[in-house]
Write a protein that binds this DNA or RNA. Structure first.
Lengths: 350, 350
DNA sequence: TGGTGAAGGGAGAGCGCTCTCCGCCTGTGC
DNA sequence: GCACAGGCGGAGAGCGCTCTCCCTTCACCA
C-alpha cells in the first residue's frame, strides 16, 4: 500500500559531490564557479566527482542566494500593433526575422545556462508588467523587439533604469542600450548598386517617417544618390506595409512613368511594389530595377528574387544578449549600443 | 568612499508581510497559497498587508522547497529541418502559426505565473539536452512543436516518461500526450464545399505521406469525396513545400486538364499551386476552385485569398499548456490527448 | 627561529520559502 | 464537568546553494 509513484530519484547535490571528492561543499562550489584558486589536483578530483555523480547545480538554490534568476525575458512588444485583421501579428512572425533573433540570442545564453523567457507585451499594462517583473526579480533583464514607434516600453525601461537592450534605436533618444544596423550605409549600398547599373530615373518607396528605420533609410538613400549626381530622388510613403507600397507604386508610376530604379525600404513593401509593376507590364529588373531592405523571407518568396540590403540579424541578436549579460553582471548603469554593418545581397531584381 | 551603487531596495519578504499583518510567516504563506482554512478576518488582513508591502513571492525560494521551477520549455524541434537554404527555419517562422501558439500557451501560463522558456532543438544532441533539462529540474515540463516526421524528440520524451505535450500526433504511436485537429473532419469540410460548388473533376495535392497530417488529409479527403460519389480522387504529392506543389500542379494539369476543383493539403502549397494555375491561364475559382488547409498567412497573402480549413491554433496551444500543467501537478503518468474540430474559412478561391 | 603574509580549505550562516508538527482554543457529547 | 475532536495559528526545520569568516599550512625573510 505504499506510494506507487516512482521513488523520485533525488538529484545529486553539492554535498554529494563533496562527499565523493572528499572535500567540503565550499570547495566544490569554488571549483564549479571557478572562484578563487583551488589546488589543481583537487580541482580535477572535484570535476571527476561531478561527472561521476552527474551533478547539475540547482538553479533555484543558486538564485536564492545570488539574487539572480538566471533568466532573461525576450519581450515582443506589440503594443498597438495587434489589429483585427492581424490579431496574431502575422506580419511580425511572418518572417524568419524572429527565428533569427531567437537563434542569435540563444547562441549566447545557452552556453551560460540562462533561460530565455518569451513574453508578449500587448498593451501598456503588459509593458508595466514587464518592468515590474524585472524589478521584482522574476527575470534579470530584458531584450526587446519593439514593433511600434509609439511603444511605451522603451521609455518605461529607461525610466526604471533596468537592465534592458533594444533591437533597433528607440524612436526618441533615451538612456537605453540597443543594437542597430548602420542604416545610412545600407541605403548607400543600394544607391551605389542602382547607380552602377546605370539607372537614370531613380525613386524610392519609404517606410513610416515616425520610425527611425523609415526616416534613416530614406535620408540615407537620398544622400547617397546625391553623391551620384541625383539632386533629388522622389519618394512615396509605403508605410512599411505591402498594401501601402502598392498604392505608393501606383502613384509613382503615374507621376514618374520613366522610372527605371526603385529603392524600397523593406522587402515586404518591395513585394507589393513588384506586383504592381507586373500588373503594369513592367519587367523587373529589365524595365525597373528594385532593391529591398532587410533580406526577409519576402525577398526570396516572390518573383524575381529580391536584391536587398541584409542586416546581420543573428550577430545583432547575439550582441543584445552579450550587452544585457554584461549590464546585469556589473551593476553599473552605463548604456552601451552597438551598430552593425549591413550587406548587399544581389539576387535578380536589380 | 562607500559604494555608490544604488542601495538595492530589498524586496519585501513573507516575513515582512507577516510582521505588517501581525501574524506568522506560515499564516501568510497559507493565505497566499490558499492552503487550509484561514480565518476570514485574518485572510483579509494578510491580503491588505500583501498589497501594502507590495509583496511578490520569491520564485527561487519557492522552487527550492517545492522542487518545481515554475517554468516550462517551448521546444521548437527543428531536427533536420534546418537547411542551407533555410538556416533559420523561415518556413516555420514564416507564419503566424508560431505567434498563435505562443499566444495560446501564454494565455494559460501567465495567470499562474509560469515562465515559458524558448528552446530550439536543432539536432539529436539538443533533443537529449531537452530531456536532461526536465529530468534535472531546469524546467518542469515541455510543450513541443515538432517539425519533422523523423524527429527523435517525441520518442525520447516518451521514453523518459517526462511531462510533455506535443502539438500534433506523433508520427508513430507512443505514450505521450498531444493535441491535434480532427483532420478527417477538416478534409470532409473541404470535400463538402467542393461538392456543393458543383465541381465535377476533383483532385488533390497532398503533403508528405510520412507525416500524419499528410496521410490523414489525403485519406480523409478521399473518403469524404467517395461519399459524394467520387470513387477515386487523383492525388499528387507536393511534399508540403511550395516548389513541390508547383511541380505537382504542373503534372496534375498535364494528366488531368479537365480538373475544376483541387484540395491542397496546406496553404503554402496552395499558393504554389495557384501560381501555376495562373501561369496556365486558369482562373481561380472560375476555372478551378482551390481549397487549402491551415489558414496560415499564406491564405491571405496571395491572390485570390484562399478558402481554407482552419485549425483553432490558440485553443489547441492553450490546451497543451493545461494538459502539461495538470500532468506536472499530479505526478501521474497518464497521457491525455485532445482533438479539436477544424472549421472552413470561405474566402475567394473556392 | 620566530614572525609574517599569502594561499587554500572548512565551517556555518543564511537566502525566502513551504510544510510538518505541535499546541491552543472552542465546541460537543456523555 | 470532563474527555475528545477538530479547526486554526505558530515554531522551526530544512530545500541546495554561496560566501564570509576563520583556520591551517607553508614559503620567505630578518
Amino acid at each position: 500500500m505504499s506510494s506507487d509513484r516512482p521513488p523520485a530519484p533525488r538529484l545529486p547535490t553539492l554535498e554529494d559531490v563533496a562527499q565523493v571528492a572528499g572535500v567540503s561543499r565550499a570547495t566544490v562550489s569554488r571549483v564549479i564557479n571557478n572562484i578563487r584558486n583551488v589546488d589543481p589536483a583537487l580541482h580535477k578530483t572535484v570535476w571527476d566527482a561531478v561527472t561521476a555523480t552527474g551533478y547539475v547545480p540547482n538553479r533555484a538554490a543558486r538564485s536564492l542566494v545570488t539574487g539572480r534568476t538566471g533568466a532573461i525575458a525576450l519581450v515582443v512588444s506589440e503594443a498597438e500593433s495587434r489589429t483585427a485583421d492581424d490579431p496574431f501579428m502575422g506580419r511580425f512572425f511572418s518572417d524568419p526575422f524572429f527565428g533569427r533573433v531567437v537563434g542569435g540570442v540563444l547562441s549566447v545564453l545557452r552556453p551560460v545556462g540562462v533561460h530565455l523567457a518569451l513574453t508578449l507585451a500587448g498593451d501598456e499594462e503588459a509593458c508595466q508588467k514587464v518592468v515590474a517583473d524585472v524589478r521584482q526579480g522574476q527575470v534579470d533583464g530584458v531584450v526587446v523587439i519593439s514593433l511600434h514607434p509609439h511603444d511605451p516600453l522603451p521609455g518605461l525601461l529607461a525610466e526604471a533604469a533596468v537592465p534592458a537592450v533594444l533591437y533597433g534605436r528607440p524612436a526618441s533618444p533615451m538612456p537605453i542600450s540597443y543594437v542597430d544596423v548602420a542604416t545610412y550605409n545600407g541605403a548607400r549600398l543600394a544607391a551605389d548598386h542602382l547607380a552602377a547599373r546605370g539607372c537614370q530615373h531613380v525613386a524610392t518607396i519609404s517606410g513610416s517617417m515616425d520610425m527611425p528605420a523609415g526616416a534613416d533609410r530614406l535620408n540615407g538613400f537620398r544622400e547617397a544618390m546625391a553623391k551620384h549626381g541625383f539632386a533629388y530622388v522622389p519618394s512615396y510613403d509605403g508605410g512599411f506595409t505591402s498594401d501601402g507600397a502598392e498604392r505608393a507604386m501606383e502613384q509613382l508610376l503615374r507621376e514618374y512613368p520613366e522610372v527605371d530604379g526603385v529603392f524600397v525600404a523593406s522587402d515586404v513593401m518591395a513585394q507589393g511594389a513588384m506586383m504592381v509593376l507586373r500588373d503594369h507590364g513592367k519587367a523587373v529588373p529589365g524595365d525597373v530595377a528594385v532593391i529591398g531592405f532587410d533580406d526577409s523571407s519576402a525577398a526570396t518568396t516572390g518573383r524575381p528574387p529580391l536584391t536587398t540590403v541584409r542586416q546581420p540579424v543573428e550577430d545583432m541578436a547575439a550582441e543584445m544578449a552579450r550587452l544585457l549579460l554584461a549590464r546585469i553582471d556589473q551593476r553599473g548603469h552605463r548604456t552601451t549600443s552597438v551598430i552593425f554593418e549591413p550587406e548587399l545581397v544581389v539576387r535578380q531584381s536589380a
